[in-house]
């Protein structure tokens, strides 16, 4: 049993204990040295500040948008890339590589590429006669722009998970269906899609957890701006921490924790039930 000790000590002291302590400190006005119990005031304040509620909404939007697009695009790319396409190896590699690159580096690069006036993206759009959006500078498109970069960076992992899922499906199923005269679409709907459920469930859960917690990319690109237009829970937790509102910051942490639990737990149970065994 003492084999558990080195890992367990670090894990319990630096992860589990702070998590439990956060429940208490979120109910206090806290200076790190002194905590004064104020009941649910932090939470009341949290839900009465308009920009904080906006951040909560942004977090959910960001997570579901990135997760949904990664599922659809990841699945399509995987179907395409397992069909013995010309240049398959190169295509897989180039789509996957951004997963490994520093999020901060990607954020800074796209901030420059998305420059409304001098940026390469709008420059290219002008060539096609399209007037590009203002991207990060416009409160209405800032969060969406970051979500698109997140998709760019993360679709590779969804794709490789789907490729692994596809290669686990026995060839015979599709061959038998073809012999029975099933069309390509029908085969996808009745065989491939249901048997890909474990992969789908993995991609959804992983990208939702990542999306709900995401911080690095948003912080590198807008710091939550313009105004609070692209603020999410993680960036607000950091801002409240920087401002010295430790209790409020911790309450934000608890809200995020509850949000993740409320979304992920029922969803993963539901998806597990949907999963059919091969």
């Amino acid at each position: 049993m003492w084999f558990l000790i080195p890992g367990a000590v670090i894990y319990l002291v630096l992860f589990i204990f702070p998590t439990i302590a956060s429940l208490f400190f979120s109910l206090t006005r806290w200076t790190l040295f002194d905590a004064q119990f104020i009941g649910l005031d932090n939470y009341t304040q949290f839900f009465s500040e308009r920009f904080l509620v906006q951040g909560l909404y942004n977090t959910v939007f960001y997570a579901f948008f990135t997760s949904g697009t990664k599922v659809v695009l990841g699945m399509l790319l995987a179907l395409w890339l397992t069909g013995r396409v010309f240049g398959q190896g190169y295509l897989r590699a180039v789509i996957f590589f951004p997963v490994l690159v520093s999020t901060i580096g990607v954020g800074i690069t796209f901030k420059v590429l998305m420059d409304p006036f001098d940026g390469l993206i709008n420059g290219s759009l002008t060539v096609f006669g399209v007037e590009g959006p203002l991207w990060l500078a416009d409160p209405d498109t800032a969060l969406l722009s970051i979500a698109l970069v997140d998709l760019w960076k993360g679709v590779g992992i969804a794709t490789v998970i789907y490729i692994a899922g596809l290669s686990a499906i026995p060839q015979e199923y599709n061959e038998a269906a073809t012999v029975d005269g099933a069309s390509g679409f029908r085969r996808f709907k009745e065989i491939t899609f249901p048997l890909l459920m474990p992969a789908t469930s993995t991609v959804i859960i992983l990208s939702l957890i990542g999306g709900l917690r995401s911080f690095d990319l948003i912080w590198a690109m807008t710091k939550g701006g313009p105004g609070f237009a692209s603020d999410v829970m993680a960036s607000m937790i950091f801002k409240q921490y920087q401002a010295g509102f430790y209790g409020l910051s911790t309450a934000g942490n608890v809200v995020l924790f509850v949000l993740v639990a409320v979304i992920i737990y029922p969803l993963s149970r539901y998806l597990n039930k949907k999963t059919v065994e091969l």
Partner: peptide
């Protein structure tokens, strides 16, 4: 052992739960 279930749950929690930042700083201090 009878702890296995609990430990497994804790491990799973580690993959899902966002770390509580300021309390962690407090512990580290």
């Amino acid at each position: 052992s009878r702890w296995t279930g609990l430990i497994n749950a804790l491990v799973l929690a580690g993959l899902i739960i966002p770390p509580a930042v300021v309390p962690t700083i407090w512990v580290m201090q």
